[in-house]
Amino acid sequence: MEWQTEEFGSSHEGRPRALLADGTEPGPVYFDIGSGAEIPKSTDWWVYDGTLGAPEATHLRAACTCGWRGDRLYPLDWTEVSRRHPYEYDTSALYEDWTRHISDVESRSVPLPTDIEATIEDLDRRLTALADQAPLAALRAVTSLERVTADAGREAAYNIRADELTWETISKALGLTEDAARSLLFRFSFRR
């Protein structure tokens, strides 16, 4: 069970995280399935049920791959957790905590100019319709857009590097982790 936005992708994947009675997040639970080179492991909250050598979680909180952790702790009622379908357990409050985090990330990122945002939304709608009605024309349009975006991306990456911004500033402005921001700039810097 992971939460994700298209805009921020793996930089900000959210999920419920289990907490032990002492307030710590437990490490992965390893599953011994016999011989083999790989030992399966999991950090899904429901594996911390106190069985098969796993510690028992007492609370849940929202977490994000960027390192953010929610302030609110939610008691975990194991009598309400279905062993066959643990993902049916109500984690909506944790999801709401994570969406507030995403709203904060969005508010700190560079806003798109209103006219550009409207153009992108219009183009998305029109290309989707064109893909149904005239798929060859849609593919030709997408190919043209790839060229335009590659050129603009390369120019933007060059200017960002010329401005000598810190990776912290760049990543915050893009709403990405520093590694993801580096990867993005590298990708556009050498795109042809």
Rank of each mutant, 00 (worst) to 15 (best):
M1A: 10
M1Q: 12
W3D: 03
W3E: 02
W3K: 02
W3F: 06
E6D: 13
E7Y: 06
G14Q: 04
L20Q: 06
D22P: 04
T24H: 11
G27L: 10
F31T: 06
D32L: 06
G34R: 04
G34Y: 03
S35R: 14
A37M: 12
I39T: 15
K41G: 15
S42V: 02
W45A: 06
D49Q: 05
G50I: 11
T51V: 09
G53T: 02
A54E: 06
A54S: 13
A57G: 07
A62N: 03
A62F: 00
C66P: 04
C66Y: 04
W68V: 07
R69P: 05
R69L: 15
D71K: 10
R72W: 08
P75N: 08
W78A: 01
R83A: 15
R84G: 14
P86H: 09
P86V: 01
Y89F: 06
D90I: 05
T91I: 08
E96L: 13
W98L: 08
H101T: 00
H101S: 01
D104N: 08
V105N: 00
E106I: 12
R108E: 04
V110K: 13
L112D: 07
A118D: 07
E121T: 11
D122H: 13
L123E: 11
D124P: 03
R126D: 15
R126V: 14
T128Y: 10
A131N: 05
Q133L: 15
L136M: 14
V142D: 08
T143V: 12
T143L: 12
T143H: 13
S144H: 14
L145G: 13
E146K: 13
T149W: 08
A150P: 07
A150G: 09
D151F: 12
G153L: 00
R154F: 09
R154L: 04
E155G: 11
E155M: 09
N159I: 03
I160C: 01
I160S: 00
R161Q: 08
R161S: 07
A162I: 05
T169E: 12
I170G: 05
G175N: 06
T177G: 09
E178F: 10
L184I: 05
F188K: 02
